[in-house]
């Protein structure tokens, strides 16, 4: 694995990606280049169909890289094996638009399940960490509720607890506020931001919810498969661990 910047946790260059074959082939990503530093909160915005979710699935190791170079958390994704991708995904905390919690489990059990991915964590420790995590997201009182009895915002908070409890090296979030009303969406994003800051976890979040842009250190915009602009988010004025960011140009990658 080689990266341009040894500190960056995600580096990519020359990424092209298409769906379909032959005449139906439709290119989604064009020569994308990006770098994300440790501890950074980066928002990826742009109109629907601009390719931001596709880029996210590539970074997550959920799709096979077709062209270009992409290194995530020390894994080179070019020609990576399924087993390697699985290992990568275990280091990532995922938050989805749909929470997709297991409906037959309680909030606590949904979070605890994550420790099946980390066999070295004992059952007792797993339960304690899951409990603390749920208290942090404000669900200490409802840990033993089945998720069907929780509201949309509460479910998304369980999903955040589930994503962070395993101490991931990177958090990927896809429209985490899309299914929520303004207030719950705000709460969820604030929570995500404060937890990420506390745990020094980098976040890459796809969103077109303009109400939450202020949590970002950096905002990357996408249009028709191109990264068009990168601007410093309002949050970057505050001190945060990723010093490297400030030394770099604001416009990280602009292509075509």
């Amino acid at each position: 694995m080689k990266t341009d910047d040894s500190k960056a946790i995600i580096t990519g260059a020359g990424i092209n990606f298409s769906f379909g074959q032959g005449e139906l082939r439709k290119q989604i990503l064009f020569d994308v280049e990006l770098a994300i530093q440790p501890g950074e909160i980066v928002l990826l915005t742009g109109p629907s169909g601009s390719g931001k979710t596709t880029l996210l699935t590539l970074i997550a190791g959920l799709r096979k890289l077709q062209e270009g170079r992409l290194d995530v958390l020390g894994h080179s994704l070019h020609n990576a094996s399924q087993a390697d991708l699985l290992q990568l995904r275990r280091k990532i905390g995922f938050i989805f638009q749909a929470h997709n919690l297991l409906p037959y489990l309680t909030a606590l059990q949904n979070v605890q399940v994550m420790f099946d991915l980390q066999p070295d964590v004992t059952i007792k420790e797993g339960r304690e960490r899951a409990t603390r995590m749920l208290q942090q997201v404000g669900l200490g009182e409802r840990m033993n509720y089945h998720v069907s009895r929780l509201s949309g915002g509460q479910k998304q908070r369980v999903a955040i607890a589930r994503a962070l409890v395993g101490r991931p090296e990177l958090v990927l979030a896809d429209e985490p506020t899309a299914a929520l009303d303004g207030t719950s969406g705000r709460e969820v994003v604030n929570l995500l931001q404060s937890l990420a800051r506390e745990q020094k976890r980098p976040i890459l979040m796809v969103t077109h919810d303009v109400r939450v842009l202020d949590i970002a250190d950096r905002i990357i915009e996408m249009q028709d498969g191109h990264l068009t602009a990168s601007s410093r988010g309002s949050s970057s004025a505050e001190n945060h661990p990723a010093k490297g960011v400030q030394n770099e140009p604001d416009i990280a990658n602009v292509t075509l």
Partner: peptide, 8 residues
């Protein structure tokens, strides 16, 4: 599918 994505 979600669990698979998360690395199960």
């Amino acid at each position: 599918a979600t669990m698979k994505a998360m690395g199960f």
